[in-house]
Design a protein around this nucleic acid. Structure first.
Lengths: 195, 195
DNA sequence: CGCCGATTGGACCCGTCGGTCCAGACGTCT
DNA sequence: AGACGTCTGGACCGACGGGTCCAATCGGCG
């Protein structure tokens, strides 16, 4: 049903489409652009994605959801000390500063995630996983005594996640880093402020 | 150059277009939809917006930028006490909860604001004005002694603004209020935590 | 080799959408 | 009243983009 060659082509299409969408936005990317960028033909697009564009966009959404988490690893997975939190924070800021408009997160949450129920599910699941990593990280700090027991892990993690999403959205819309940088730094610093 | 009747028609077009875009997203709204929803004809659209759709979208962006600020008034303009901050916070949460997907802010920042330099300028200016109201509010609390002198108004205001933007973006993408509610509440509560 | 399904190329179709154009109605000012 | 500019209706056009179709090629397997 799908040979190694076929799987490779399919992957090339998804990668290329994701890349284009990150750079130019969902609206400005047509099947012809994807075809050209991935050196494929119309028939291949519909061969690997029978339901057409919506089908392909779903695959891209899944790909980008993975990407958003993966690009923060391994730091996101081991937020066990204050130093590691700071390392992760620097990593995130550096990444988004370099990506600017070409940001997988805002493309996914802000554009791909609209409308379609299945895609929203993908976005929701991605955010859940991300949040869980943050919650685990906050709990680790609490357990080691680096921050107060009074800190609510879910609440703090949610604030941090929202800071990143808001910062990324505004970065794309205004090309200014200060929202993301200030809000993320503030949200993390708040972890060890007295209550 | 533009009679009272003409001005009214023009306004009706902008209002109707903004409404449609809030409900269905920029991508899913065509000139024909706007024409139908505002009981106008193609020629009128191009009569009042000679450069076509881009021209109209610019007017919509300006309209929505005004709307985003206006719908928070008068509370946003008088954040002088802790109680008033809480009243504003409740107002914001209630608004976005009711609007859900049909949210002017995310339509503006997430969709209209992409690409076009002029539109980005509009978004940037709107955010600047909004931030200034918040900075003024934080400074008022500081002046009256309700919060510590050590609080950095710009930093706190930026964190609050980013919380709203992130929360609104995620609300639209996931239909969940918890991000906005938790992050905004946390960002505001942080104002009066000891440093 | 010869079969068969996976894979590929690309011409073609058709609905949609932004944009153009012209003719006519309206309104206002002299 | 008459004239001129504003306003309105809607037919029409051309480009673009998603989707269909068929024929050709590839590649593994008996």
């Amino acid at each position: 049903m799908l040979t190694a060659k076929g799987a490779a082509t399919r992957q090339r299409i998804v990668d290329g489409a994701a890349q284009l969408i990150r750079e130019q936005g969902v609206v400005n990317v047509g099947l012809d652009d994807i075809r050209a960028a991935t050196s494929t033909s119309k028939s291949q697009l519909f061969h690997y994605f029978p339901d057409g564009k919506s089908d392909l966009m779903l695959a891209v959404a899944r790909h980008e959801a993975e990407q958003v988490i993966a690009e923060q690893m391994p730091q996101l997975g081991e937020l066990t000390t204050w130093r590691k939190w700071q390392a992760w924070r620097r990593r995130v800021l550096k990444m988004y500063d370099e990506q600017r408009e070409g940001c997988a997160l805002s493309a996914l949450v802000g554009q791909l995630g609209l409308g379609d129920t299945t895609t929203r599910q993908i976005v929701g699941d991605m955010l859940d996983r991300w949040l869980q990593y943050l919650v685990d990280g906050v709990e680790a700090l609490r357990a080691s005594g680096e921050i107060s027991e009074a800190v609510d892990p879910v609440r703090s993690a949610t604030a941090i996640l929202t800071a990143i999403n808001g910062g990324a959205t505004m970065l794309v819309a205004t090309d200014r880093m200060n929202y993301l940088e200030t809000a993320l730094t503030a949200a993390i610093d708040d972890l060890r402020r007295p209550v």
